[in-house]
Nucleic acid binder design. Structure first.
Lengths: 334, 334
DNA sequence: AGACAAAACCGAAACGTTTCGGTTTTGAAA
DNA sequence: TTTCAAAACCGAAACGTTTCGGTTTTGTCT
């Protein structure tokens, strides 16, 4: 069926090495170039990437490991990354590990076995011996969104601390003092950074920091709803709440709707991520959003850099700013 | 670095073919099995899938082409499909074509070039010469969600016609007569099926079918909002509206919120897909949902089937039922 | 025309598997 | 103990590239 390089050599009367050289951008005499191109056209030749891969020990495939594909934040990053990678000739091999540490390790191993050239990962697990296997093979790894204990590689993060800090500042400016936080699980990198930003901003604003105003959800819709209920029951006097990720924001809104709390009349709210959702809320929700596009661009840039000149040894950590998008969910009580 | 099959042969004193046979599940004498396993352990041997691929002409990779990764409907299907495929030893190579026909053709070609063993595709384009290239190579293709003109392969669909039909029936039961439809672009397979279901149900209910009650959005959030506005302006007497996909549902809700329409007081609404969104709406939105999990399972089952016994020639078309999930967005006006 | 460096070209060997056809070993039956 | 089919084993060849070291061609300068 498929023609090989040998067929092209025979057809053109040229040598194997010449064809190979042509295919890899080498110089070839004009008349030969024409002959080769004609032969390729005629025989529908297409280089066999598998054979090339065997020889060069490169697959031109990048593995991507994410916690949850139907998490819009992940999906946005992946779709952007995939786009850029493909433009650069790299295919993307995707593994969704369902936020399960064990599955994540399996996925990394699977991709290693499939011999991908590099790895883009939004870590789920806290530790990651598996990642070191990549490094040992001199294959680049770029972390996105979260850091991992014991792994000192390149990393692209959002300014998590800054995000909650700014949110608190906005609420304080509007005169709020009793501000609740729906926090994420402390063992998750982003969650603890966001918590820290909240606490710092509260302290800087000279506000009293009461532990019971910080309720831990688990980064899920259900958890967000539960946390919202708890906060509202325990603190009927709370005037504003900050929700520290998207899923919990949805959960909090569900709870708010179902229990008939008026926004922003009774309670002001700042959510997290997903502008579309924010716009669909009534009234439009104010949110902090992460720069998914930029994160993907940065991660891929670093990865491709390492892939091209493997000498570039310096480790890069990029922290990208978040953005406040105002809605009508904050009441001014000054 | 990596040990090869030859190293294992040398270490164990066995022949190449024996090792290969062992690796492929062939029979080997007990004592040799032990020797081989010990050697594999000792040398950290891992079969080189690339070399194997060159020889067998199989990559154990399935290409997936989707219109939009950050469309939750796509994401749900993909994540399920990827999971099952990986359990069966297949990797997933993902291409997001951003709902662009041209990009879609490129993606299919790209995957073909990467020599994937099969293709799962949620088509964007209407026609698809590119798909025939796969068939010509006897590589299986399974369509998901939409049919493609001129392509007669396996296909997994939701019961689009049934979905809108049931929705209308629910509204009719609640006493509605002036029912609007926010339709999708007629050239899209699912959209025209959903339209047809709407019209059929209206006729069966003996209701007058006025073209101006069917406004075409373009399956986007913006389009849904625009269509909602138009419908509401032109038909202040309309008592219910059915929105025929998820993005437009979000758009319609945004418009409803922003223009202060009361649901279900002034207007009853049935949306489409994404239960989480429906629950976050206030009041909870009634929706028709598509069986994403089942669709993925069916598609992968068919694909793996074709991959194993290539003789199985019969073409399969699976149509899976949709589900009504009730909320509080329908007013009973009987 | 002759000399000569640079550019283009060349085929064999190698990458790590599977597979083909043929040889050896095994162990139950005679 | 011998026989003999079945099971296990074996190495060479092949899959389609790239690369190495060496040869030929080209075209510019005397």
């Amino acid at each position: 069926m498929g023609a090989t390089i040998k067929d092209i050599a025979r057809e053109t009367g040229l040598g194997l090495a010449t064809i190979s050289s042509y295919l890899n951008g080498g110089n070839v005499r004009e008349k030969n170039r024409i002959k080769i191109e004609a032969a390729i056209e005629k025989l529908h030749f297409e280089v066999n990437e598998t054979a090339r891969g065997l020889k060069t020990n490169k697959t031109k495939i990048i593995g991507i490991v994410i916690p949850e594909l139907n998490n819009i934040f992940c999906a946005e990053i992946i779709s952007e990354a995939e786009d850029i990678l493909r433009q650069n000739g790299y295919a993307t091999m995707l593994c969704d590990c369902r936020s399960d540490e064990h599955r994540e390790a399996e996925a990394v191993e699977f991709l290693l076995h499939k011999r991908v050239d590099g790895l883009l990962i939004m870590p789920t697990g806290e530790y990651s011996e598996k990642l070191e296997l990549f490094e040992k093979q001199k294959k680049p790894v770029v972390l996105i969104d979260r850091k991992v204990r014991g792994f000192h590689g390149d990393c692209v993060l959002a300014d998590n601390e800054g995000a909650t800090k700014e949110a608190v500042q906005r609420l304080v400016e509007a005169g709020h003092k009793k501000i609740g936080l729906i926090a994420g699980p402390q063992h998750i990198f982003t969650a603890s950074a966001r918590n820290w930003g909240f606490q710092k901003a509260m302290m800087e604003a000279g506000l009293f920091l009461d532990d019971s105003f910080m309720v831990c959800g688990d980064y899920t819709i259900k958890g967000g709803a539960r946390a919202m209920r708890k906060l509202h029951e325990e603190h009927p006097d709370m005037t504003a709440v900050l929700v520290s990720n998207y899923e919990m924001t949805v959960g909090a809104m569900i709870e708010i709707n179902e229990s008939g709390i008026q926004v922003p009349g009774e309670l002001s709210v700042i959510g997290f991520d997903n502008l579309e959702f924010a716009r669909a809320c009534s009234p439009k929700l104010s949110i902090m959003t992460q720069p998914t596009r930029e994160m993907a661009v940065a991660a891929v840039r670093i990865l491709l850099g390492k892939l091209q000149n493997e000498d570039g040894k310096e480790v890069e950590t990029v922290i990208l700013p978040t953005t406040y998008v105002g809605g009508r969910s904050i009441r001014d009580i000054k």
